[in-house]
Design a protein around this nucleic acid. Structure first.
Lengths: 222, 222, 222, 222
DNA sequence: CATGAATGAGTATTCATTCAT
DNA sequence: AATGAATGAATACTCATTCAT
């Protein structure tokens, strides 16, 4: 059965996501200009965009290159004009996700005041990222880590550390219930990442901001 | 290259794990008697045992039924005399893991004193489970949740709730920094689950007990 | 389009060939018993048989595993029950071809008298092999050498040397127009191999025996 | 991973070869003028040049048009402005190789004296051709014959016969151990072609001229 | 004449599952 | 209950060829 093309998405979004906040548009433009993000209009950008979406929804192993091609509107063979393997797609998605999330959080921390406000900003940023608001594909970093080859893991890890560094500095300045900033970060990272499994921001109950406030209470009691 | 059998494990352990604490032996015997755990000596038990091990190491998608058969010492075709599909193996592993983890934690809570001590016991129990000490395969519950079909998820979820109920009751009795016991549980669950990714109990640094104490300080400040 | 099976050959021949001389039957049986040849009735034997035929006709690169499966009457996927890769098939074909050709030539040399008669026997043996009379697949050794991976080449080369050794010994005993038996062998090897491209034994002109006599005149003038 | 251009060869050689003897330069110029060879400076000439090189090294099937383009310094798509298919490249390579080899051998025979000297010249010519000294790509004529379509084979065969004709005439004049000049040619052709598989002219042992002398001794005993 | 992105038919290989013995 | 050979559908990836720019 021959492969058929039926364009679904002719995306006009970022390469790392769909419906995003207006305030992020300029940030994306800057990162594209710096070469850290692919132009979301380009085939490559749309490919990463759609792949991120599918990996998040169905997981890397259960997403086929045909799925990705179909979502973008090209045949699966054409994908290999842009990436040499399926795994390279995953690696690039992760890299762009980190670049964007890092830039976004750095900005938020810079405009915050006291350390506790900075922590609040970080929590809000990461929650927004995890829940697809601002940095679609962010959860892939956690969920699909093991789908990456050892070499790719090493490269992405280095990049990811520049993101983690921001968190650790905030915890260092703040103090908090624990002495070790790195340990604090790891615990809060797990707590926030896990919200992906149970928290639904659309719901009538707790809002994303409300959740951020609660997490802040645990990791930075007044 | 025909499939060959070369017995590796002729397990004498629980169906959910290998080297375990002596104090758990009687618990396992009880659960086997109640029909909640498979006899670890039986083929079925050994199958679940090995599958749990492999799913934890390589992930569900990357583990083949041939791998499982080879580990147990039977051919892949024979597995389907015991389970109707690979997914059923995963479901059964998860069910037995929950039964065992629940019984183990219930026991620990029962022998603990004040609520804060009960929380401490829960934290220690789950950390031991996650790090393969006591309940091998426990991390599969988190890591491979999405590999389960929707129907299986529903069934396992019901079971898992009996486990979660214990946690929620402890948090209810304790109070803690947050008003909502369910929210507290979810945050601590994420924090503990994530230790799987970074904490190495063999290391010279923080011990598993030390880690439990630190987590207790965050979620139950004195 | 799903792959369909349509049995063509349910072979009753050797794993290395179809219509063969009666005098070879017992030789084949011996080699099968020694484990040097696959049972031509078994799936593995028929697989090698058909593969040899196709590789000879269309070349290794242009023969697909589907072609081979179709010829044997199984689906392409089933082939990998018997061989781990297409290249392994080629390697095994070559190995069995060498075992058979060597045994055949050793027998012929043993029953020949003077060195010149021995050379005559060798020439006739190799011509029969090349022209598909006795050792189907023999030409693959020359034609598809480069399709073998470096490691496989090394292994097959060692085997092939036991075949070449017979030739060299015959030339050593004979003398001939050149001093170097190895050089003589190489020149005659090329001359004989090349007959594959132009000589048609069915033709009315020169017979295979006639050709052998002529080659003998060149490399062993009276 | 889009296709990138990185000029490797901006050839200044013949379309059929790189480092060649000075005495061949004028011959090439003549053939280019006659339209029998492509201008080695032109894109077409460089294409044939590089293709010959790659086909010889890796084989026709394992050489991709991208490989060829990359070697020349253009993208694979551009190749089809010069040739209508990959196979046409092979056919043209073969044709130019024959034209050149024929002219070269004709010259050598013309300057030789007695028939035995003429045969010596032929042998040396063909050995030089086979071993990439003088007519790069010559071995393709033998090795990749089956990669040519039936129609192309017919055309090239006609051309090749004008080359073979020279050999046959020499054998006719000489006599030799066999009565049939065509048979003599076929045997010597195989012997020479096969040297491609084992003879290394760089080696310390037998030189190319030494090898020619030995072959002469076999096919034209004094 | 060259580019570069895309096509589409094909490739070897994988693997859960079936079933006669 | 186990074997072992087979299925069949799916998988990632390849590559000659086309064509609008």
């Amino acid at each position: 059965m021959a492969e058929k093309v039926a364009t679904k998405h002719r995306g006009s979004g970022s390469s790392v996501g769909g419906g995003r906040l207006d305030s992020d548009s300029t940030l994306i433009a800057t990162l594209v200009a710096e070469g850290l993000l692919s132009d979301p209009q380009s085939t490559r950008g749309r490919l990463l965009n759609c792949a991120a979406h599918l990996f998040e929804q169905k997981g890397f192993a259960r997403t086929t290159v045909r799925d990705i091609g179909a979502e973008v509107g090209i045949l699966s063979g054409s994908i290999f004009h842009h990436f040499s393997s399926k795994e390279e797609i995953l690696r690039c998605v992760m890299e762009e996700v980190i670049h964007f999330a890092r830039a976004r959080m750095a900005e938020a921390v810079a405009t915050a005041g006291a350390p506790r406000e900075q922590l609040h900003a970080c929590i809000r940023c990461e929650l927004e990222a995890i829940h697809g608001r601002a940095v679609p594909g962010f959860s892939i970093l956690v969920l699909e880590w093991r789908s990456l080859s050892a070499e790719s893991q090493a490269g992405v890890l280095r990049l990811r550390d520049s993101y983690e560094q921001i968190w650790r500095e905030v915890f260092s300045a703040l103090g908090g219930p624990l002495d070790d900033p790195a340990l604090s970060r790891r615990l809060i990272q797990g707590a926030i990442a896990h919200t992906h499994n149970w928290f639904r921001p659309e719901g009538k109950g707790l809002s994303l901001d409300g959740l951020a406030a609660q997490i802040l209470r645990v990791f930075a009691p007044e």
